[in-house]
């Protein structure tokens, strides 16, 4: 509650892969972030509602089952609509179907308004480093 940076995390859409998000919860908490973990099957509206109440600095979207591209569409616009214009958006996991060149995938998600995009198997340390840079902490 002291001046910790606040993150909302969760697995988007109809995705039930529950393990990775637990690991991220621990890793981010241990690294000094205040984490609100929404668990699995999280809708865009739920991320936004939680981020609004806790005044989050970032939303970390996880997607593993391959439908990430559909599920994530419009999230940035909805954040803007809800007054969360400055919020940091990350996405990671197995965000698209099958094996596609990562730079193309990254470009598509960045165009959707995500600040950073992480490929399969990214270790949490790498993400934490990026968060520290982006949030200045």
């Amino acid at each position: 509650m002291e001046n910790k940076k606040k993150l909302v995390i969760g697995v988007i859409g109809a995705d039930v892969h529950a393990v990775g998000i637990q690991i991220l919860d621990h890793a981010f908490s241990d690294a000094g972030f205040d984490v609100t973990n929404l668990g699995v099957m999280v809708s865009q509206e739920e991320y936004i509602a939680a981020a609004t109440e806790i005044d989050a600095d970032g939303i970390m979207v996880s997607s593993l089952y391959g439908h990430g591209e559909l599920d994530c569409r419009g999230l940035r616009e909805k954040c803007n609509e809800a007054g969360l214009e400055d919020i940091l958006l990350y996405v990671g996991g197995n965000i698209v179907v099958g094996k596609q060149p990562f730079n193309e995938v990254e470009a598509r998600f960045k165009k959707m308004g995500f600040n950073r995009v992480f490929g399969p198997g990214t270790p949490p340390e790498e993400t934490i480093q990026c968060l520290k840079e982006d949030l200045g902490c």
């Binding site: 509650m1 606040k6 609004t52 109440e53 806790i54 005044d55």
Partner: peptide
Amino acid sequence: TGGTDGGNK
């Protein structure tokens, strides 16, 4: 009311 503790002010 409004905001969690440490949240939106």
